[in-house]
Simulated scan of single mutants.
Amino acid sequence: MTTSTISLRHARVRYGPLEALHGVTIAAPAPGVTVLLGRNGSGRTTALRALAGTVPLSAGAVVWDGTDVTRLPAHERARRGLCLVPERQAVFGSLTVRENLELASPSYDEVLDAYPQLAALLPRRAGTLSGGEQRMLALSRALLARARVLLVDEPTQGMSPSVAARTYDLLSGLHACVVVAEQRLPPVLHGRPALVHELRRGTVVFSGEAAELDPPARADRTPPPPGSRPSG
C-alpha cells in the first residue's frame, strides 16, 4: 500500500464571525501515528475535520502528498483513501454490528481477531452498544477500509485500558498516515516514536516527538487570540 503524508498550512477556520483555527501549520508523516493534543476548545477536532474536508478553510491550505487539496470535497478525499472516524455517530446505529462490518468489507475475520468482544455482538444493533463497543466497531470499519490516511477523534473513548492499549498497537502497526485527536497523550505512546502537535485555543503551542513534550503545566502559557471560539 502506498503511504501518504498530509498537512495543514497556515490554516484558518471560521464559524460565522468567530475563528476556531488561527493560522495552524501541522504535518503528519507516514507511516506512523501523529497526535493532535489539546483540551476541549483547543481546536484539535476542528483541525482533524479540516484535514478531512468536512469543514472549509477560510485561509491556508490542506496539502496531501505535495498536492493542494484544499478545494477537494470530503467525499473525493475519501474516495482517494482518506478515512475519518468522528467522535460521535461513527457507526450506523440502526444496523447490526455484522451489517456495519459488511458495509466496509465482506470479510471481517481480522477485526474480530483484533477485537474478539465484537464476535458475540454481531447480531446486535450498533445503536444499543456501549460507547467503548461502538468505538471498537467504528475502528474496525476503518481498519477494513485500508485507508492511506486515517483520522480518528478520541479513538479509545470508553474503552478499558487493555483494549485501549491494543487499539494503539493496531494503529501504530498500520502502514499508513494515522492522525488521532486526544485530550491527553495516551500512556501507551510514552516511549514510542510518535509526533505530537499540541493545540491551545486554535494555535499550535508545541510540535515535536512525544518524548519531548513538557508536563501539562505548560497549558496556560498562550493567551487566547481575539475572536476565538470554544471548539473541539
Rank of each mutant, 00 (worst) to 15 (best):
S105A: 15
R125H: 13
P116F: 05
A74G: 06
R148V: 10
T128D: 14
L171R: 00
G131L: 12
P155S: 01
A104R: 01
Q157Y: 07
T167Q: 03
L137S: 00
R148H: 14
A138Q: 06
L151P: 02
P123T: 09
D109L: 08
A145M: 04
L139K: 06
P155T: 05
L72Q: 11
A120T: 15
T96C: 08
V91G: 00
L112D: 02
V179T: 05
F92G: 08
S162E: 13
G158W: 07
A114H: 03
Y115L: 04
A164Y: 08
N100G: 07
T96F: 05
R80C: 09
C177D: 11
A104P: 00
A164W: 11
A78S: 14
R125G: 15
E99V: 08
G127H: 02
L151E: 09
L84K: 00
P161M: 11
L129I: 06
E99D: 14
G127C: 06
A90C: 11
V149G: 01
R148M: 12
L101A: 04
R88Y: 11
Y115Q: 00
E76T: 14
L129M: 09
S130Q: 03
S172H: 07
V111M: 04
A126T: 02
A126C: 08
A90I: 10
S162H: 12
E102C: 02
G132K: 08
R71Y: 01
V149W: 00
E102P: 03
S94Q: 15
R135A: 09
F92P: 06
L150F: 01
A165D: 15
G132L: 09
H75G: 07
G93F: 00
A145K: 05
S107P: 05
P116L: 11
G81A: 14
L101Q: 05
A78V: 07
L95K: 08
L82D: 11
R124Y: 03
V69Q: 07
T167G: 01
R146M: 06
L143V: 13
A104E: 05
G131I: 11
M136Y: 01
M136I: 04
C177F: 06
A181L: 10
R88D: 15
D113I: 10
P86V: 14
V163K: 01
S160Q: 12
Q89R: 13
L171V: 11
Y168P: 03
L171A: 09
S105P: 03
R80G: 14
A78P: 02
P86M: 08
R98N: 05
D65H: 07
L139G: 01
L82T: 13
S130V: 15
G173F: 15
R71W: 01
P123E: 10
R79G: 15
V149F: 02
H175E: 15
A104W: 01
Y108I: 09
Y115M: 02
E102G: 03
H75I: 09
L139E: 02
E110D: 13
L84F: 03
V179D: 02
L103I: 13
P86C: 11
R125Q: 12
F92Q: 04
C177W: 04
R141T: 03
R146V: 09
D169E: 15
A126Q: 07
S130C: 12
